[in-house]
């Protein structure tokens, strides 16, 4: 997997550039003789396709030269792409934002902090009382300072 990283990431970029360029083709063009709104997107799309092409070619070349000393590079693989904690962290982030409109800032932040700090603390060190205290006190203090003290608007949620 790691060996092909350059080729894969270049491929993803190429795909993104192609889609971007494709959507760019649908932007209406005005024939007033000057540059229209579709010009820059198309130009960016083409340049990115070229650059990602170069990255893929460089990746393939590096692969060929490295093949001789294969085996050594494989041991360096320490972080795999999909780490369970990372996936859960992303889910927490998405849930947090999704809950903002429903529960409002205060409650969602307390829940988010409870989940995230628990996830980030090593199993042996988890101290429930401490985590709950940190989450609640921090959320309330932030809410009071920004919503009440500074008068900023924070998500109210359905139950306010």
């Amino acid at each position: 997997m790691r060996k092909y990283k350059e080729i894969i990431s270049g491929g993803v970029m190429l795909l993104f550039a192609a889609v971007y360029f494709g959507i760019g083709m649908t932007i209406p063009e005005f024939n007033d003789g000057f540059i229209s709104s579709d010009f820059m997107p198309k130009l960016y799309g083409i340049i990115l396709m070229l650059l990602s092409g170069i990255q893929i070619i460089m990746g393939v070349r590096a692969l060929k030269t490295n093949q001789a000393e294969d085996g050594k590079t494989e041991t360096q693989e320490n972080t795999s792409f999909i780490v369970p904690e990372v996936v859960v962290a992303f889910i927490f982030l998405i849930l947090y934002v999704a809950l903002l409109n429903v529960l409002g800032f205060l409650l969602s932040t307390i829940l988010f902090l409870l989940g995230m700090v628990t996830l980030f603390t090593q199993k042996g060190e988890r101290n429930v009382v401490k985590i709950v205290l940190i989450s609640v006190i921090f959320s309330v203090v932030v809410y009071l300072i920004f919503a009440k003290g500074f008068g900023l608007t924070l998500p109210e949620g359905l139950i306010g």
Partner: peptide, 9 residues
């Protein structure tokens, strides 16, 4: 996590 909550603000 605390910093992120502030980022949301």
């Amino acid at each position: 996590p605390l910093v992120f909550a502030l980022c949301i603000v």
